[in-house]
Each structure stands twice: as structure tokens, then as C-alpha cells.
Write a protein that binds this DNA or RNA. Structure first.
Length: 609
DNA sequence: CCCCCCCC
């Protein structure tokens, strides 16, 4: 059975910019004659930003095309391949690199791969047509960007571009999907879907300010950043939600660390960049999400950014933290979010957003560009560039709403973020999933970056250093500063007071081991209290009165096993860099809980497989 | 050219 292609459509599409024919609702039935992946740029990191070129036919003519990344799912699933017939549900016909290109933004598969239908000819005609139609098996789609640095811009394009400036035809504009560093004479028509605050920085290399926007059109999105004087020029002009014609910006490789926008490039807004508001904002979409669910979140690296949608299970109290880097106080609030995976995750809001957040009815919330953290497993945190949308009118939100109201609200969730206020698989604030062996802690180099890493382990005390087990501290509540003996009196510099006797506080250095390795852990007063079951004052008293009794107490603490929550951090002392492991919490083993955890592991799918 | 994202 032969499928009927929309004969004659390629010619009409190809010429639509000259004839002015509006084919936007035509949904032509076309055949994919060939497909080729465009060479990825050197920093491409994932398949979702692959770009596929195609030659597409109506049985009479063929032309060159490109699949927008929204269609990549169908291509990766091999739903669309050579000879597949598709209904093109949404498209745009553009000039790109001097060629006319059909950009396919949405497609439905009609029939899978069969035979090539008809004897289509190149709609452009001429010598190129002969070459391409004679070799359909090894097609030669539009050259990849790396080979087109000198492609001349045709008259039609420059004419169309200038007409666009005075509110002319939108189809003469470059698609965002087609931007690359190898073109310089383009104009995009894009909506600002997100704009950051103006941020200032200061480091060894200098100081300055910057802002960035997310720009979106029907084909894709791209981040654009402006620095210093460009901030003054463009910050007020570019308004969130509005649509602009933008040209003469530099196209650079994207710095993925600062965004998860699905584009391998980003724009640098420069002094001569032209920005003109477009009053006709139709056909320019509003927001695009690339959601991960909580299973997918597990796969992401720390510090990656992602989009996430979930139901708010719990709104934590407003709190404050003091940044170690800047010493500034910042408001924070932790939300607990759940999704259909049966997991929950902690997401932290900062500043005014934390202070003003108010939702008590388990709303569905969509987040764009949030940071992945590894606190006790996986956690999420807002960047200043992240966006939060409460009960958005999108299908994912409606699906979550239906699930939560019917089932989810009564369900138990497994926390991915220990230390949050939710969680069934946590223990002493430490997620069991994050239990590591000491060998693994050392082997994987935790604490070797400039930031601290957190881990937990189950280990047995082998030895506690007996000299300097404590220090004389200021007895003032919360001071804890070391005091000095000034002849019968103990003086605290910080409190500017002297005391008759100090309050001893533990400083513990202990060797612990599990079945894989041993390590030295450092702990403070709470650790000593848990290990010895007495205050440092009491222990110091015993040591002074009866040294053998003190040694017995130390010896008896050996062989006790604890679950430790630790912090690994590099430090340099006397020109020697080493990793120090600090104990932030320790809990004695609860054998029933240990057994339940082992049972859970044994019942997990991978254990049964 | 030039970018941090905080705390446990």
C-alpha cells in the first residue's frame, strides 16, 4: 500500500517567502529521503542537543531540512529514519547559510521505513540537483557549519532581513536553532523568557557586572549575556516576556556550567549589538522545559543545572545562613518536593524568594535551571537565574496534579536529600545510599576539590589520641574560645573576661577502620561526649587524679562502632596539603535499623537481578 | 575579555 505524499508542497514551501503563501497550517505529508547528524561542536555533552539535517521529499521535489531538537526523541527511538513518511505538524521555512531550509519542529510518523516514493528532483534545479538526485544513498545535505565560513549571504536574505526590521515577515528571520559561530549576518526574532538581576563580580582578574537573558523562538532557545557597559545599554531595554529582533551579537560556545539551556552556543551581547522590540509577538513561544524526574536526577552530576517539576510536600520554616565565602547573612527556606517516582527531594530557596514563599495547598511547581547539589544524596538549589512557576498550565503539571490527588498524597516517599525534614531511608541524618567504604572515600578523592565533600561511613574506633584530648575553653555559653592561664585565672580574649576555671571541650583525633581501610577522623565536643559518655571536664579530672584509670577509659572506647557523617576538606599546614575528615555527627549502631536497611538493599531490583 | 549561587 502506497502512502499519498503531499505532491507539490515542497515547491510551494520553498517559494513561500517569495509568494507570501501562508502554509503554516498545511501539515504536509512528506518523506524523509536521508538524514545526517551535524558534527557536534567540541563541547557537546548530550544527545538532546544533537542536530539532524535531512533531505525531505513530496515525491516530486526534495529540499534540505533540519529537525529541531524537540524531534530528537523520535529520531533516537528510530521512529524517524530514512524513508519514513511523516506529517509535518509544525515547521518554519528559513534561510540558513545561504540556503532555504525546512525546519521541522513537530512531526507525526505516518509509516516507517519503506521504499523511496517517486523520483523527486531537487527543487532548486540546476547542476546541484543532478548531483544530489543521482546519489540519494549517500546524500550530501547542507554542509556542516565548520565548512561554511565563507558562504556568501544571498541577496534575498539581506533584503528580507532589513524588511524584518520594519516589522516585515517573520519567516525571513534566522532560527535560533541555526545560529553558529560561522555566521555573522543574522537577525533572530526571540522572546526573552528569563532575565537575571544585574550581578557584580570581583576576582583576581578584575571586577565588573553582567546580566543574562534566555531567548526563545519556535526552533529553540539560547542564552545571551552582556557585560559592563552593555548592561547599561540593554538591561532596561530587554524586558522579560517581550519579543525582540536581535542582531550583531557574537556566537560563542556555551558555558554549560552556567545554564542547562539546550544549545551548544550562547550569545555575547556587545556594544554594537542591535536590539529592537517586536510588537508582533505571535508565534513566539513562552517557556520550554527539559524536565528530569527524580530517577533522572540521580544520574546528574553535582553542580549540573536541570529543570524539575514536582508537588510540594512540605514547606520548611524560614531560616538564615551565613555564607562562609562572603560572611553575608542570607535567608533560606527548604521545600520538599515529590514526583511519581516515589522519591522526594529537597529544594532550597534563597533571599527574598525564601522570605516571601507561601503555599499551603501542595501546589505543582515547575523549576527551570536549578542547581543539582549532593547534600546527603541529591538536593536542588535555586540560582539567581533559576525560575519557579507555581501551578503552570502545562501537561506535566496536570498529570502530576491528577496523580498526587488520587494517589501521591497518601504515599510514602524515599528521600534523596538527607538532612531535609522528610525521608524514610535516612539514618542519623545520613542517607543510606550515600554510605561509603573508607577505601572508596579515599579512592574517589572526596575533599580534593576546593569545596568540602560530605559522606557517611560505618566504622570502628581503633585508637584515640590520648594527649591533647581537650582544650580549656571559655565557659560563656556559645563562646568555646580557648582561654589562657594567667596565674590562677583563665582569660578569654574574645569575651574580655577571666574565669576561675575553664570549661574543657573535646578535640578528638581518632583512627577508625572498616573492612576496607582506616582513616583519621577529627571531632569536637559532641563526638567526645558520645564516645566517652562524660564531659571533658570529668575526663580531664580523672586524668589528673588517676592516669591509669584514664588510660583504661581510652582503651575501652576502642572497638566501638558508629555511623559517622563526615566532611572531607583539603587544607594546607606547614606547606603540606592533606585531606582532613571532620565528624559532623556520629550515632551508635541501631542493629534493628541496620538490619532493616540491609533487607531493603537485598530487596532492591539490582540485588534480585 | 569578563560568571558566584551561599548552610548543614
Amino acid at each position: 500500500m502506497q502512502v499519498e505524499l503531499s505532491g507539490g508542497m515542497i515547491k510551494r514551501l520553498f517559494n513561500s517567502q517569495d509568494t507570501g503563501e501562508d502554509l503554516s497550517t498545511s501539515q504536509p505529508i512528506l518523506q524523509v529521503i536521508s538524514m545526517k547528524k551535524v558534527d557536534p561542536p567540541p563541547n557537546a555533552t548530550n544527545h538532546s542537543s544533537d542536530r539532524w539535517r535531512t533531505i525531505i521529499s513530496d515525491g516530486e521535489h526534495f529540499m534540505q531540512g533540519m529537525f529541531a531538537t524537540q524531534v530528537n526523541g523520535l529520531i533516537e527511538a528510530h521512529e524517524i529514519q530514512k524513508n519514513t513518511v511523516i506529517a509535518v505538524e509544525n515547521f518554519s521555512c528559513s534561510y540558513l547559510q545561504g540556503k532555504r531550509l525546512l525546519i521541522i519542529m513537530a512531526a507525526r510518523v505516518i509509516t516507517q521505513a519503506g521504499e523511496k516514493i517517486g523520483k523527486p528532483e531537487n527543487v532548486q534545479g540546476g547542476a546541484a540537483a543532478a548531483a544530489e538526485s543521482s546519489a540519494p544513498q549517500t546524500p550530501n545535505p547542507a554542509p556542516s557549519p565548520s565548512t561554511t565560513t565563507t558562504t556568501p549571504v544571498p541577496h534575498a536574505q539581506s533584503r528580507q532581513q532589513s524588511s524584518a526590521k520594519v516589522g516585515g515577515k517573520a519567516n525571513s528571520i534566522y532560527p535560533i536553532e541555526g545560529l553558529s559561530p560561522y555566521q555573522n549576518n543574522w537577525t533572530i526574532k526571540a522572546r526573552v523568557t528569563q532575565k537575571t538581576d544585574v550581578k557584580t563580580w570581583s576576582n583576581q582578574r578584575g571586577e565588573g557586572k553582567l546580566f543574562s537573558v534566555t531567548l526563545m523562538d519556535e526552533t529553540g532557545e539560547i542564552r545571551a549575556t552582556g557585560f559592563n557597559s552593555v548592561v547599561d545599554e540593554l538591561y532596561d531595554k530587554l524586558q522579560e516576556g517581550n519579543v525582540y529582533y536581535i542582531s550583531k551579537a557574537r556566537v560563542n560556545l556555551a558555558k554549560k556550567k552556567f545554564s542547562n539551556i539546550q544549545n551548544d552556543y550562547e550569545l555575547a551581547l556587545e556594544r554594537n549589538t542591535e536590539v529592537e522590540e517586536c510588537p508582533d509577538a505571535s508565534n513566539v513561544p513562552a517557556v520550554r522545559y527539559n524536565f528530569v524526574n527524580l530517577n533522572g536526577l540521580e544520574e546528574l552530576q553535582k553542580d549540573a543545572t536541570c529543570d524539575f517539576i514536582g508537588v510540594i510536600k512540605d514547606v520548611g520554616d524560614l531560616g538564615t545562613i551565613t555564607s562562609k565565602a562572603s560572611n553575608k547573612t542570607v535567608a533560606k527556606r527548604d521545600l520538599t518536593l515529590v514526583d511519581q517516582t516515589g522519591k522526594s527531594v529537597r529544594l532550597t530557596l534563597w533571599g527574598a524568594q525564601a522570605e516571601q514563599f507561601n503555599a499551603d495547598d501542595s501546589p505543582v511547581v515547575a523549576f527551570k535551571g536549578v542547581k543539582v547539589g549532593d547534600f546527603g544524596g541529591r538536593s536542588l538549589s535555586m540560582y539567581s537565574s533559576s525560575t519557579m512557576s507555581i501551578n503552570p498550565d502545562i501537561t506535566e503539571a496536570h498529570s502530576l496534579r491528577g496523580w498526587y490527588d488520587a494517589l501521591g498524597s497518601g504515599q510514602n516517599f524515599t528521600s534523596m536529600s538527607s538532612g531535609s525534614n522528610a525521608g524514610s531511608s535516612t539514618m542519623g541524618g545520613v542517607s543510606r545510599d550515600e554510605m561509603r567504604t573508607l577505601f572508596d572515600v579515599k579512592e574517589s578523592g572526596l575533599g580534593t576539590s576546593d569545596k568540602a565533600d560530605y559522606f557517611s561511613c560505618r566504622a570502628t574506633i581503633m585508637h584515640i589520641k590520648g594527649d591533647n584530648i581537650s582544650y580549656p575553653a571559655c565557659p560563656t555559653e556559645g563562646c568555646n574560645k580557648k582561654v589562657v592561664d594567667i596565674g590562677g585565672q583563665w582569660r578569654c580574649e574574645k569575651c574580655d573576661r577571666s574565669f576561675e576555671r575553664p570549661e574543657h571541650r573535646y578535640i578528638m583525633s581518632m583512627a577508625v577502620a572498616d573492612h576496607t581501610a582506616q582513616a583519621w577522623l577529627q571531632g569536637f565536643n559532641d563526638v567526645g561526649l558520645a564516645v566517652f559518655g562524660m564531659s571533658a571536664n570529668e575526663l580531664v579530672d580523672i586524668k589528673e587524679r588517676d592516669e591509669p584509670a584514664y588510660n583504661v577509659i581510652l582503651h575501652k572506647s576502642n572497638c566501638a562502632t558508629f555511623n559517622f557523617a563526615c566532611r572531607a576538606k583539603q587544607d594546607t599546614y606547614n606547606d603540606q596539603t592533606r585531606i582532613r575528615y571532620g565528624i559532623s555527627r556520629l550515632t551508635p549502631l541501631d542493629y534493628k535499623a541496620e538490619m532493616r536497611a540491609l533487607k531493603t538493599i537485598l530487596q532492591s531490583p539490582w540485588a534480585r537481578a
